[in-house]
């Protein structure tokens, strides 16, 4: 099986280890991974604050890079949701681009979704360790409907103990440009999230979106917490 990897701008620029972990995982399950050259960003920074023309320009570029029939896999629930739901809406009035958007929307997968639904990676399981809790990011769960897959993967971590996070579904305060536009609220929400994480007694918190994890990580660092913040891809890949 082949898959096109969409690294996302955050992983590409700030968290390359998550990209490498994603490649390692996909290859482990027999996937031939391609990284379409020229990929940049899904366009959410512009889309979410109302810059429609700019979002369209970036989305149009994405569609010109991701061609063909292979599934598009990305280690981000938020970017997957952007392609799946907002691309077709962005090009509503442009029949040609709309067809391309719908084609891409039909083959985009968030990583945990792809690992469970397509590769059935949980059946083999992964070596793991320690006490792990999980923050379910908003676009992954609410926009993409991926609720169970990350949990199924976490349950398949042999040797690790999973502890549920109270109020896991409460937003961490990242919100893309929200963190820049209303940092006071964003930080307050991240602190609240950090409180919940610390209260679980977990040594690792994981999730499926680098943006949320970055925001959480900053709050954990500010309080000098030893809790490790790791993308689910990194957590799964490190044992294999």
């Amino acid at each position: 099986m082949r898959a096109q990897l969409f690294g996302t701008c955050l992983v590409d620029s700030f968290f390359p280890e998550v990209g490498e972990a994603t490649v390692k995982l996909l290859r482990r399950f027999g996937v031939t991974v391609t990284f379409p050259k020229g990929q940049t960003c899904c366009g959410q920074p512009a889309y979410n604050v109302g810059y429609q023309a700019e979002a369209r320009s970036v989305a149009g570029h994405f569609l010109s890079v991701f061609r063909g029939e292979d599934p598009i896999v990305t280690p981000s629930g938020s970017c997957a949701a952007m392609v799946k739901h907002h691309y077709p809406a962005l090009f509503r009035d442009d029949p040609k681009m709309r067809a391309a958007a719908e084609q891409a929307a039909g083959r985009v997968f968030e990583l945990s979704q792809f690992l469970v639904q397509v590769l059935r990676a949980h059946e083999k399981g992964f070596p793991g360790k320690g006490k792990v809790t999980y923050h379910s990011s908003c676009h992954l769960t609410r926009a993409l409907g991926v609720l169970e897959e990350p949990l199924i993967l976490l349950q398949s971590l042999r040797g690790a103990e999973f502890v549920p996070l109270p109020d896991a579904a409460l937003c961490c305060g990242f919100g893309g440009m929200f963190m820049a536009k209303l940092p006071e609220i964003s930080c307050a929400l991240a602190e609240e999230k950090a409180d919940s994480i610390v209260a679980t007694g977990a040594d690792t918190v994981t999730g499926c979106d680098a943006g949320c994890l970055m925001n959480i990580s900053d709050a954990m660092k500010k309080r000098g917490s030893p809790v490790r913040v790791a993308h689910l891809a990194s957590l799964l890949a490190e044992g294999i």
Binding site: G7, S13, F14, F15, G19, V23, T34, F35, Q39, M214
Partner: peptide, 18 residues
């Protein structure tokens, strides 16, 4: 804002990607 983000990676993922 930027103070809450880590420094960019020395080598972006695109340069190590398959």
């Amino acid at each position: 804002v930027a103070g809450r983000m880590p420094a960019p990676a020395k080598t972006p993922f695109r340069r190590k990607a398959p």
